[in-house]
Measured scan of single mutants.
Amino acid sequence: TTIEWNGTKITVDNPQKAKELAKKIAKKLGLTVKVHGNTITIE
C-alpha cells in the first residue's frame, strides 16, 4: 500500500497500518484521506 502526499510516497506493507498512518498525517496537516485501491492519497 502506498501513501502519497505532496510528491512524497511511502510504502507500507500492512494496508491497515497504512490507513492509520495516513489518517494521522492528514489530521496533523488538516487534510483529507482518499483511498484508491492500493494507493492512499492525502489531499
Rank of each mutant, 00 (worst) to 15 (best):
N38M: 07
K24E: 08
T8W: 15
V33Q: 01
T8C: 15
T39L: 09
I25F: 07
T8P: 03
E4G: 07
E4A: 08
K23F: 14
N38K: 06
I3W: 03
I3Y: 03
L21N: 00
W5I: 10
K23S: 09
T8H: 15
K24I: 13
I40D: 00
W5S: 03
P15G: 05
I40H: 01
E20S: 13
V35Y: 12
K17A: 10
I42Q: 00
I3F: 04
G37A: 05
K24N: 06
T11K: 10
V35P: 02
N38H: 07
T2V: 13
K24G: 04
D13G: 11
K9N: 05
K27H: 09
N6E: 07
E43D: 08
E4D: 08
V12E: 01
L21C: 09
T1I: 15
G7E: 06
P15H: 13
E4S: 10
I3A: 06
T11P: 02
G7Y: 11
K34Q: 08
N14W: 05
K17E: 08
I25K: 01
K27L: 13
T39E: 06
I42Y: 02
Q16A: 11
P15M: 14
G30I: 01
G37Q: 05
T2R: 05
E43A: 11
I3T: 06
Q16I: 12
A22W: 04
I40P: 00
P15A: 10
K17P: 01
I40F: 03
A22L: 04
K19M: 15
A22C: 02
K9R: 13
I25S: 00
K9Y: 10
T41C: 08
A18F: 05
I25A: 01
L29H: 11
V12S: 02
I3N: 06
I40Y: 03
V33E: 01
N38Q: 06
I25Y: 04
T8F: 15
I42G: 00
K19Q: 10
N14D: 13
I42T: 01
L31A: 10
V35E: 05
I10H: 02
K28F: 13
K27C: 10
E43Y: 15
L21T: 02
G37R: 04
I10Q: 01
K19F: 15
A26I: 04
L21K: 02
I10D: 00
G30Y: 04
L21I: 11
L21G: 00
T1Q: 07
L29W: 14
K19W: 15
N38T: 08
V35G: 01
K9Q: 09
V12H: 02
Q16W: 14
L29E: 03
I42S: 01
I3R: 04
W5D: 02
D13Q: 14
I3E: 05
N6V: 08
E4R: 10
I10A: 01
K28I: 12
V35R: 06
L31C: 08
T41A: 04
A26G: 05
V33D: 00
T41N: 04
Q16D: 10
I25G: 00
N14V: 03
K24F: 15
A26N: 03
K24C: 15
A22P: 00
L31T: 03
E43N: 08
K24L: 13
K23H: 12
G7L: 06
W5P: 02
V35N: 02
K23G: 07
P15D: 04
H36V: 13
I40R: 00
G7M: 06
K28P: 02
I10V: 05
T8A: 09
H36T: 11
V33L: 10
E43T: 13
H36E: 12
L31H: 04
A18G: 02
W5M: 05
A18S: 01
P15S: 06
T1F: 14
I25M: 07
L29Q: 04
E4Y: 13
I40W: 02
E20C: 09
T41F: 14
T11M: 11
A22T: 01
K24V: 09
T41S: 08
N6R: 10
V35K: 04
V35W: 09
E4P: 05
L21P: 00
K34W: 08
P15K: 09
E20V: 13
K28D: 07
I40V: 05
P15R: 11
I42D: 00
V33M: 11
K19V: 14
G37D: 05
E20Q: 14
G7D: 04
G37F: 04
K24Q: 10
G30N: 06
K23Y: 15
N6F: 15
E4W: 13
E20D: 08
E4H: 13
P15C: 08
N6S: 08
L21R: 02
E43R: 11
H36Y: 10
I25H: 01
K19N: 07
L29R: 06
P15Y: 14
V33I: 13
I3K: 06
H36P: 00
K9I: 12
T1V: 14
G37N: 06
I3P: 05
K19C: 15
N38P: 03
D13V: 11
L31N: 02
K17S: 06
G30P: 01
T32D: 04
T32V: 13
T11H: 12
K9P: 02
T1C: 14
K24M: 14
K9T: 11
L29I: 04
T8E: 06
V35T: 05
T8S: 09
I25W: 10
I42C: 03
V33W: 08
P15N: 07
A26Q: 05
K19I: 15
E20G: 06
V12Y: 06
P15T: 05
T11Q: 09
V35I: 14
K27S: 10
L31M: 13
W5Q: 02
K24T: 07
H36A: 10
T39W: 07
I40T: 01
A26H: 04
A18C: 07
I25L: 11
G30C: 07
T2Y: 07
P15F: 15
T41V: 12
N6I: 08
I40Q: 00
K28N: 07
N14T: 11
I42L: 15
V12G: 01
H36N: 13
E4Q: 11
K23R: 13
L21Q: 02
A26L: 05
W5G: 03
I3C: 11
Q16G: 08
T11Y: 15
T39Y: 09
K27E: 11
G30Q: 04
I10R: 01
W5E: 02
K27Q: 11
H36K: 11
L21F: 10
I10W: 12
K27M: 12
E4K: 09
K28L: 13
L29Y: 15
Q16N: 10
T2S: 08
V33C: 07
K19A: 10
T1M: 14
K19L: 15
L31P: 01
E20R: 15
G30W: 04
Q16T: 11
K27G: 07
I25D: 00
W5Y: 10
K17W: 12
G37T: 03
V12L: 13
V33N: 00
T1W: 14
T41M: 11
A22M: 03
W5H: 04
T11L: 12
T1G: 07
T11S: 08
G30L: 02
T41D: 02
K34H: 12
T1N: 07
A26K: 07
G30S: 03
N6K: 08
A18D: 00
T39D: 03
I3D: 04
A26T: 04
L21D: 00
A22Q: 01
L31D: 01
E43K: 10
D13T: 12
E4T: 08
K23C: 15
T32F: 07
Q16S: 09
K28G: 05
H36R: 12
T11F: 14
V12C: 15
T32M: 09
V33R: 00
T39Q: 08
T11D: 03
I10F: 09
A22G: 02
E20F: 14
T1S: 08
P15I: 11
G7V: 10
T11R: 11
N14Y: 04
K34N: 08
K9A: 06
K23N: 11
K28T: 08
G30M: 03
N14I: 04
P15V: 10
E43Q: 12
I25N: 00
I25Q: 00
A26M: 07
K17M: 11
K19P: 01
E43L: 14
V35L: 08
L21A: 02
V12N: 01
K34T: 12
T32L: 09
T11N: 07
K17C: 15
K28Y: 14
T2A: 07
K34F: 10
T2N: 07
E4L: 11
I42W: 03
A18K: 00
A18L: 04
I40S: 00
N6G: 12
V35H: 06
K23E: 13
K17Q: 10
D13F: 14
L29C: 13
E20I: 14
L31S: 03
K27V: 07
T39P: 01
T41K: 09
G30K: 06
K23I: 13
P15W: 14
A26S: 06
T8L: 15
K24Y: 15
N38G: 05
K23L: 14
I42V: 06
N6T: 09
L21S: 00
A22S: 02
G37C: 06
V12A: 04
T39F: 07
D13L: 14
A26R: 14
K17V: 11
V12D: 00
N6W: 15
T39R: 11
T2K: 08
